[in-house]
Design a protein around this nucleic acid. Structure first.
Length: 494
RNA sequence: GGGCCGGUAGCUCAGUUGGCAGAGCAUCGGACUUUUAAUCCGGUGGUCGCGGGUUCGACUCCCGCCCGGCUCACCA
């Protein structure tokens, strides 16, 4: 686990296969030949995708990118150049290319170069740049991953995402799509008059969700602080302050385990609208997600071909209790706790003896109902114990006026009729018990006492939404640098 | 944190009962001026994740640890 000691005689061991050494030697040779190995700016380049799009036989081209493959034919060399927008073939020949021998002998796959040349089409129909001039922009001292099988090792793909992006074009597609999704969400909300705001991520008290926070320390203030688990309580303060349509699209941090659908830092959209309620948010969620999907995916059938999810509205709306009854029996809610526990065990669930009937029921919901809901479904009327920040339903004080939007078995978005009665809010927060319960945030309650408009609020899990819209089967496929166990520093240096 | 699976060349992967550690790609040398997984010929390259143990002998069997994957737990 410790780094190997430096080899004092490494220089005397030229027979070791060390592509780094070989590339360093090439770099020295390039410098000697008048090619600085880390070039200056190379402006006014065309994007290769645009060159392909507007291909014109005989036109001059200036471009820059990374050499991906090099096919040496002796007095000519074919190579593939990639600049992120696409790939394009280069053709260098002894007759037409400046410094051809240097190009052939000292450049490697992985090097960054700038090129100038003329477009033509090869005998096999491949559109190609006939290379006239080239310049070295950066010498790569490490080899590229394998070109045919690509890079598969999940750990390397995540820790060295740049290699994943170079080797696996579909990975780049996912992150470009993520960028378009986030942009489309902002544009949608801006067009509806929502104001984007930023509230503290460094907080003295974590609130707005039930989760263990990350702890940190502010040196100058000598204060213990936490990273936020949700922006909710600050956004509601803005409703008190007179903002009527606000949203925040940024990171939350929860000190929890990692899984296929959980990363400790994740991106959440939270939207609040004064004078609205759960129903208003539900309509907004459906319109937001369908319009973003249509704009970014070009269709409402999204995901992988063998597992398409149909987002066509209207989406199903169904009370929580009905879904539980479908799985656990029509008489479920008339069962005594022990009978419910026995039936849940019979359904294959593992019960904690300390669980209340509400918790047993929620286990049934999460394990047997939720993950089987493929098409978008608004689950409404959740037990009030589960959601302390929402208003109870007028016709049944045991349930709250909220929705939980499920798509593809994932919790994508909750939405509430927000509780604005400070007295009830205090009682509901105090009702919560147990290790995960948030402490009562007195500043938040003080704000509510000044009068918060009745409002609808919702949160959209952006990472999970991107999973749905890209067909990714794990959250780490839609987060550029997902959390992994930290490695010892020595290990990161080969 | 628990259970299961995995870690072998830079990358993708084989490895027999416990008996000299392999292939393809990459890399190095050679041939080739329309190739595109270029092709052909010849080489280099290994702390078999780490540390112990059993054994004449361990990539292989045993124990501990590290890292990853799946899963469970945690997670309104």
């Amino acid at each position: 686990m410790t780094a190997p000691p430096a080899q004092p005689n490494a220089a005397n061991a030229p027979d070791r296969d060390d592509s780094g050494e070989q590339r360093l030697a090439k770099r020295r040779a390039l410098e000697a030949a008048g090619f600085p190995s880390y070039g200056a700016a190379f402006p006014d380049t065309a994007m290769l995708a645009a060159v392909r799009e507007g291909f014109l036989e005989g036109a001059s081209v200036r471009a820059a990118g990374r050499l991906l493959t090099v096919r040496d034919m002796g007095k000519s060399v074919f190579a593939d150049l990639s600049d992120g927008s696409g790939r394009f073939q280069l053709y260098a020949t002894k007759g037409h290319t400046e410094a051809f021998d240097t190009f052939k002998q000292l450049l490697d796959a992985g090097d960054l170069i700038g090129v100038e040349g003329v477009l033509f089409t090869t005998r096999l129909g491949e559109r190609t740049i006939r290379l006239q001039k080239w310049t070295l922009l950066a010498k790569a001292l490490r080899p590229l991953p394998e070109k045919w099988h690509g890079l598969k090792d999940v750990e390397i793909r995540c820790r060295q995402r740049y290699l994943d992006l170079i080797a696996n074009p579909e990975v780049r597609e996912i992150f470009e799509r993520r960028s378009r999704i986030v942009r489309a969400i902002r544009e949608f909300l801006w067009a509806k008059g929502f104001c984007e705001v930023e509230t503290p991520m460094l907080q003295t008290q974590a609130g707005g969700a039930a989760a263990r926070p990350f702890k940190t320390h502010h040196t100058a203030l000598n204060a213990e602080m936490v990273l936020r688990i949700a922006p909710e309580l600050y956004l509601k303060r803005l409703l008190v302050g007179g903002f009527t349509k606000v949203f925040e699209l940024n990171r939350n941090f929860r000190n929890e385990g990692l899984s296929r659908s959980h990363n400790p830092e994740f991106t959440m959209l939270e939207v609040y609208q004064a004078w609205s309620d759960r129903a208003g948010m539900q309509a907004l969620a459906q319109e937001l997600i369908t319009s973003v999907a249509q704009k970014v995916c070009g269709a409402l059938q999204v995901g992988l071909a063998d597992n398409l999810i149909d987002l066509a509205p209207p989406w199903r709306e169904v009370p929580y209790c009905d879904l539980v009854r479908e799985k656990a029996g029509a008489d479920w809610f008339s069962l005594a706790p022990e009978a419910a526990r026995a039936r849940a065990t019979g359904l294959g669930l593992v019960m904690d003896p300390a669980w209340s009937l509400t918790q047993i029921t929620h286990e049934v919901f999460e394990k047997l109902v939720e993950r089987q809901l493929r098409r978008p479904t608004f689950v409404t009327r959740l037990p009030r114990e589960l959601v302390p920040l929402a208003k109870v339903c007028a016709d049944d004080p045991g349930v709250v006026d909220v929705f939980e939007l499920i798509i593809g078995g994932l919790e994508i978005a909750p939405g509430y009729s927000e509780l604005n009665d400070p007295g009830e809010q205090r009682r509901r927060l105090e009702e919560q018990s147990g290790a995960t319960a948030q402490k009562v945030d007195e500043d938040f309650l003080l704000a509510l006492e000044h009068g918060m408009p009745p409002a609808g609020g919702m949160g959209v899990g952006i990472d999970r939404l991107v999973m749905i819209l890209t067909g990714a089967e794990a959250i780490r496929e839609v987060i550029l640098f997902p959390q992994l166990r930290p490695k010892a520093i020595e290990e990161t240096q080969r």
